[in-house]
Amino acid sequence: MAEVLTDSGQRKYHLINLNVNGDTRTLAVKANALLVNVLRDQLDLTGTKKGCELGDCGSCTVLIDGKPVNSCLVLAVEAEGHEITTIEGVSHNDKLDGLQESFLENAAVQCGYCTPGMILAGKALLTHNPHPSEKEVREAISGNLCRCTGYVNIVKAILAVAEKTAPEEGEQA
């Protein structure tokens, strides 16, 4: 288990190594620190949003080992030993990912608050299922609420990326 440090006020901190977007960051966190708050406040990764903070809205979505989860319901200490991907880890060398471009092209962004979570939920889907049906796309973003777009353009944007990549052998386009 991670080393535990105690400060002069008898507060306990766990020394953890968090693997975020490919980098290992060593942090001292209290046991009750939520992953969303550590990402935003300690690592300045404010692309991860907070909405309901109860698992309903999906704006705090991050990928843990490639799976979308709500970082408002994960303790930071629990995330040690896993690979975390936030929206900041989706683009590379200042170049937007294909799915991000597709969100812009298809006007899938209005206020933008749900967008990081939507893109991560979409990425997780496309990684294991590069040519999903519309139903599969809707199911994949079922945990992400959007108050602006009505979802139509978000679904379009995810499907458009799927169309651009060539179908694998034996797979139905």
């Binding site: 698992g55 709500n70 079922s142 945990g143």
Partner: peptide, 9 residues
């Protein structure tokens, strides 16, 4: 049940 994120947790 639930939604995709919650089902992963």
């Amino acid at each position: 049940m639930a939604n995709n994120q919650i089902r992963h947790m």
